[in-house]
Structure formats: C-alpha cells, structure tokens
Write a protein that binds this DNA or RNA. Sequence first.
DNA 1: TCGAGGATGACGAATAGA
DNA 2: TCTATTCGTCATCCTCGA
Length: 609
Amino acid sequence: MDKNPSGEDNDDIDWDTEDELEIQDTVFSSCTNLRTTGQHVVCSSNGEASSSSVPFQSSKFIQQFVVMGFTEESIAKAIEQNGENSDLVLDALLTFKALDDSPEEQPSTSPQLEPSISSDDSFSEYNENILDDVYEEDSWSSDSDNCINPVGRCYLNDEGSSLSGNEKTLLFLANMGYPEEEGSIAMKRCGPEASLPELVDFICAAQLARAEDPYLPEDVKPKLKHILNDFGGYKKRKMYNGLCKRKKPREISAEEETIRLPKPMIGFGVPTEPVPTMVQRFLPKKTIGPPFFYYENVALAPKGVWDTIKRFLYEIEPEFVDSRYFSATQRKRGYLHNLPIENRFPLFPLPPRTIHEALPLSKKWWPSWDTRTKLNCLQTAIGSAKLTDKIRKAVEKYDDEPPLEVQKYVLYQCKKWNLVWVGRNKVAPLEPDEVEMLLGFPKNHTRGGGISRTDRYKSLGNSFQVDTVAYHLSVLKDLFPDGINVLSLFSGIGGGEVALYRLGIRLNNVVSVEKSEANRNIVRSWWEQTNQRGNLIHFDDVQLLSRDCLEKLIGSFGGFDMVIGGSPCNNLAGSNRVSRDGLEGKESSLFFDYVRILDDVKSIMSRHR
DNA sequence: TCGAGGATGACGAATAGA
DNA sequence: TCTATTCGTCATCCTCGA
C-alpha cells in the first residue's frame, strides 16, 4: 500500500510537495466546494456559502441530484416536468432510472412484466387485494457504477409516475435481478405492508435455502454468486441505500431476533475483567484483513436494530461493551468490526475507574447514602441550575442524613443527570472538561474556537469513549508500523483519530466526514495542536462521498486501511422521546451510507490490488 | 428595541434485568 | 411486576450586542 512518505522524524516537511498537491487536486475535482488550509482540506456541499476553487457548475438544487449520481440531462427533464420540488423531481428521476435500466420491462408497455403479472394467479389475487394500497416506501435505484441514495425521501405514487406501487415494487425487484415470480411470491408472503428491503430479504433467504438444499437438483438451484456480493453479504445490501420512513418500525419477533446483550457487557474481553470463556468470533473469509472497519452505535437500541446492522455488515457478531470497565462512566455501546481480537492492549495511563478517583474533590462532600461509584452514560444535556437548587433545599433541611424518601428523590435526580457533590448539600452537573477527561479526550479538546458550552456537551455526549475504542484499535499498531490511512465517517470530535493517536499509530491520511462545522473545527484544531504530519481532508456530508469521489481518494492514497465511524444514534437512543424511529429515522438511516461507503471502498480496493 | 444565538426546562417510552 | 437506565427534542426564555 502506498503510504504517505512523510516521515515522523522529519520536522522540515514541505506541505506543498507534489504528493500533497496531487491529493488536493484530486479531491478538488470531485467536490462541489473546497477550501484548503495547508495540509487541511475542506470539501463542502454548501456550494453557495463560501468561495470555491472550482467553478460551481450548476445550482444547488441540481447539484443535490448530481451528487446522487443522476445525469444533468435527466435532472433537467425532471425539473421541466415537476418544477423545483425535490420530492417530485427525485421521484421522476428514480422512475427514469428504473425505466432506463430495463426498458424492456416498462410496465405500461412491457410484454414481459405485464403478462407475467396477469398470468400469475397468485399475484393477480394478491394484486387485487392490495390494489388500493398506497405505496409509501422509499425506493432506490441501483447501478453498478453510480450510487443513488435518496435517504430520507419518500417515493410516493403520485402523478409523476404512471406505475402503481405494486408494479414499481416488482419493477425494482426485477431491476435488481430477481425473477418476477419470486418477487410476486415474496410480496404475497410478506404482506402488503412489507418494504422493499424486507421483500429482498425474503427472496435472498429463499434462494439461499434452495441453493443449500442437498436434495434439489443442481440445474434448478440458484447461482450463489448472484445472491451474494463480492464480500459475502447479500446482494440487496447495495440496494439498501435509502430507507422508507415508516410511522411504526417493523416489530421483530422473538424467533427473528438473534442478538442478546451479554452480561457482563464486556464484549470479547476487557483489560480489567476475566476473559469470557466462550468467545465466538466468526468472520466471513471475504471480510478478513484490510480494509478494516469499525462501526459503533448505542447498545440499547430498539429491538431488531442490531440484527439489521449485523445483517448489513457481513453477518459479523457485534461486540457489546460498557465503558464502565474502562472509566468511571457507563457507556453501553455495540461495536461491529473485522479487527483481530488477540493481543489487545489498553491505553496508558489507565484512566480513573471510580467517581472518587476521577473527581477527587467531590469525595469530601459525598454523602454516605449516595452509593454511586460510577456515573451513568454521559449524554448531550445536563441538569439545570433550578434542579440543583431544588436538591440543595431538599437536603439542607436536615442536619443529619435526610429521610429515605428525600434520599431516594435526590439519588434519582443525581443518577438521571449525572450530578456530583461539589459542596455541602450541593450537587452540580459535570463541567465540560470533566466530561472530556471521562471520555478520554485531552483537556480543553472542545473548548474555545467559538463553540458554546451547550454545544460542547452535545458534541461530547455524541462521541466515543476513547479508552474503550483504543483498546479495540490497539491491534492495528503492529499491523501498520508505518502509519495508517483512515476514512472516518461521522467523525464528531474525532474520537477515532484521538484513539489512534494515543495508541501511537501515525495518521498518514485521514478523510474525515462530519456535518457539524464546530466539530470539524475541533478536529482540525486538535490536528494542528498535536503536530500531525499527515493529511486531513474534511467532508461535511457522507453523501458527497460518491463512488467516483472514493475512487479518486483511493487512487491518491493507495487505499484506506481503516473505515471507522458511528452513525447518528438520535433515532435509536432511549432518551429520545420524540423520534425514536429506529434505523429508519431521519438521522439514524445514515447508517446505510456507512454500509454503502464501506462496500464501495472494499470494492474499489479489491480492484486496485 | 430587536434579532440571533445560547440556555433552560418540560416532555415518556422502550428495554433489560431483578 | 417493579426498578433502573437511556450518544434526545423542542418550545420558550434569557442574554448580549448592534
């Protein structure tokens, strides 16, 4: 692999070497808007907001579809028909795409599809039953070269399309290479509420079952290579770029659900606990070795979420770990990765593992009836001053220990908001720098640079626990003695980068994708303060990382050694009372961009080898 | 005085485990 | 059945600078 030649010992490095310029030029050509700051490059989707070294060729409205992979001709046509209405234009573009991909299967004129429907008794019966159903699922189009990713949009059966919902579903299944008969059977078996991914799941499962049936004649077995993609995953994963926005997530039955949270939650092992006796670790052959990937999200997600994540990430078993075994705060997270698990080592010095070790000044004021030794999960919001005042008034009425009822109330609030004792009868939320310390970040990592206190809590609450992640990533140190090229998705405040740096793994090239400008500034500032000698390239939107863009980045670096990231948990987190919609939620559906990008990286790199 | 941005506080349910 | 926990959201209020 072509690593960045910049030596760690060379202090006189020239950031404008031909290599650096080549990288910058390459990225320039694939981004809609760029700024450069020495070795730091920013690729932004906001083409109108800032100057660009590349002429902005089309309006932002058009550009959003260009990024998705549609041609400007088709976009123009769609706009002409629908005006500048994003949903209608996207709907039209998807219809164009579907029709273009299989012109012989256009339902209105197709001699193949329609006869098939009408001649299939079972489907006809089904079709009559659900004729009035409105198709409210997102759909997507697939192309081997272009990634089309209408995340968060609905594919409605409106005037812009002449196809019924059922016909569209069948057409998409046909475009994906599934026989019409199987598509119609799946639609019947899965029911009228079934989404396209569910139908694909059903077909894949049926094909796999038939392929592995020893009693079935070979000539009627489906070809496995048509079912599995290059990496052992189901073919449909490539198609699962966008997701429907369903009002009610599909319930996973007890039979379907396979993932259980381990107890104790120590994954494949932690430094401070005995190694679990039965560690089952199966990696599909195609996932072994680089590029390594590391995906993170909340462990306590709605039922079935981790089953879905596992299904889309090569059926690898996730590793659930509570950061309480690494620090003084709990953080129950699932990590799904293809890293080796032997010879891990922790970061030194080992972080404090109790509240009193982490916050020694609090010990003096800590009442004996508050038996906490660990903090709960650090979240994005903190307790209010009003609440701490209420607690003070409740406790100071009593010279001695307050009655049990008061103790119970105070403890409930302290646990809920992670309040700590900072004076006689006085509790307070953690300061941002204390949160930084508990999560393994350097002091003042998020301080200054224009970020508000509220946003610091938010960014920290959304980040990795560095010691936990570093323990998992530690196996990379021996594998990449010359440094590593990292694609960091949903980087946040750079937890992955900080972990690698603290492990002593040199960061040669880091492509970091992060929506929040404040977070990008934090990572850039950390990059500069730690005198990183590699290249940091920032993107502000995962959807900018098209296959074409990834091809160019990989061509420049020689490939990514690591794809790391935790997609948004907003719609998975238990604290969300408003929109806990699962992986189909507005933000959390970006998980499928992680899958798409990882698939693309693996695919491109397999061709480069 | 006004607007922008930060701070505050009210808002349960899903899930696991005892 | 009960208890404990949870990388959150959003309307409103407050602060500050022009």
